[in-house]
Design a protein around this nucleic acid. Structure first.
Lengths: 234, 234
DNA sequence: TAGTGGTCTAGACCACGAA
DNA sequence: TCGTGGTCTAGACCACTAA
């Protein structure tokens, strides 16, 4: 409404959105014919606007009754990094860089990053704390070609936020998780006894067609439980 | 085309779907005007058909160029049960029921199943094998009200397939995973040493608004790695 | 310039739900 | 019976792409 240049179906869509956001699921939206009169447009235009909101999951059509605010969809877990995850848990996440350098990809990392063995990668190893105590050790490998000058620009606090600025925030990830006993070195860094239970987490983080980040993280089992929401539903 | 009673936009949609399924991403779909002539329908009807395929992720429109087969979307992990998961891994999954009975829900299970403490639940405890060796011990709790006669009808091979027959297949789940050392009892059943690393997995499986199943599973860490795909992309 | 998808009109008839 | 969404028509003009 505020922009006369806007497409009509966009005007109608945003008008309806502004009406229904915040209202309870089940609340009625304006009828299509009512919007036709209000905006002086054809009914197909109104339907185009409403279709978008239905696909978006905001509205729900019930034939013979009307259009109503849909109950919010349950949505699969978002791909987050450690910093975001700890913030979500209400803990203070800190990182201590143990290693940050350019390396030549070994066979495993090369395959995971869809590179060739020997290609340049950024290896970033961090001890991560939550509320002051050790939580995990993370080894992240990044495709250097996609991140020119990354090492020189100073390491960011949140990797994924830094990637977002470059339009490379991962929107999809392949994760694997298993249990193990920690090694002597890990025990020292995590401040637990050797052989304590740990959660090993591997990730391939992807944005578009590109594998952005590959990481292996070892979590203290006494401090960390992984949470996942699966599937997609109405 | 085979059914003259079918809605026109459905006819067009399924005709286009049959044309493009199996063809490589980037292959052109028929143009909208071509379909108008072929089916003798209005262009809006064709657009309705194509819109559905675009929303579905099968097609991709490029203004000024045409409509093309989209590259398949990466999709978040489906909610699967043990039987399906082992089949997917190419292993033979077997189960030995250790316990299957009606119980009164304790406080934890009641809350997880959105019931009241003392409500009737089905408790099903199984030792699960893969290719003959122990893989995990699973304790599943089901809302008895949703599954009348479930215990009497004989326990199914695949829980989720059985639920599907009743229209209660979980399409969404909240999972949590952590690492631990196994207890003496668990060690005996899993045929590992006491204190061996295990993966503890909890699930709340949901269909629609209803919590269908709550389970706690302890996996042998030497045999099991959990795989998860996160996010949703193009 | 010709073809494509994007937008839009001004009607129409239908099945279904509620009163 | 009346209002709702579902389907459908037969056009129109636009911006963009490719030849």
């Amino acid at each position: 409404m505020s922009d006369g240049r806007a497409l009509k179906h966009v005007q109608v869509r945003e008008y309806v959105r502004s009406l229904v956001t915040g209202t309870a699921p089940g609340s009625p939206a304006p009828s299509e014919r009512e919007l036709v009169h209000r905006f002086g447009v054809a009914r197909m235009t109104v339907r185009q606007a409403m279709d978008a909101l239905v696909v978006e999951g905001l509205l729900e059509r019930i034939p013979g009754r009307g259009t109503f605010v849909a109950r919010p969809r349950r949505v699969a877990s978002r791909v987050t990094c450690y910093t975001e995850e700890m913030t979500r848990r209400g803990m203070l996440g800190e990182s201590q860089t143990l290693l940050a350098r350019r390396e030549q990809a070994g066979p495993g990392v090369a395959r995971a990053l869809s590179l060739t063995e020997g290609d340049a990668v950024i290896h970033w190893r961090r001890l991560r704390r939550a509320d002051g105590s050790p939580m995990c050790i993370e080894d992240a490998y990044l495709n250097e070609v996609l991140l020119p000058g990354f090492l020189q620009s100073g390491m960011p606090t949140s990797l994924y936020e830094a990637l977002e600025l470059r339009g490379l925030r991962p929107t999809w990830a392949e994760d694997s998780v298993n249990a193990d006993a920690c090694t002597l070195d890990e025990a020292a860094l995590l401040e637990v006894e050797q052989g304590s239970a740990v959660l090993r987490h591997s990730r391939r983080a992807i944005s578009g067609d590109k594998v952005i980040e590959v990481s292996r993280t070892v979590y203290r089992a006494d401090r960390f439980t992984l949470w996942v929401q699966l599937g997609q539903e109405s």
